[in-house]
């Protein structure tokens, strides 16, 4: 059950793969065919159902390309901190 989701700004992303490295659930994977306008391979949000909205990919992205959302029906109200 997905608790959150992310959006990747492809014009900011440089394809360094650190989000793939740090996602604890392995939700993000590197694409083999998706490029941005600078010709860099992009990560894709491959397993949205596993996402917990932990925001790790957001703050560990060196280029501020990832925005994280949490779904409101989430039972654990952790977004208040």
């Amino acid at each position: 059950m997905a608790k959150g989701e992310i959006t990747i700004n492809e014009e900011y992303c440089k394809g360094c793969e650190l989000c793939v490295e740090f996602c604890p659930k392995g939700c993000i994977e590197m694409s083999t065919e998706k490029y941005n306008s600078r010709g860099l391979l992009m990560p894709v949000f491959a397993k949205p159902e596993e996402c917990t909205g932990c925001t790790t990919c957001g703050f560990m992205c060196p280029d501020a390309a990832i925005v994280v959302y949490r779904f409101d029906k989430d039972k654990t109200p952790v977004s208040e901190d």
Partner: peptide
């Protein structure tokens, strides 16, 4: 687009 979800992290 943002209905039903809240922002958890942005820059």
């Amino acid at each position: 687009e943002t209905a039903g979800k809240s922002l958890a992290y942005e820059k």
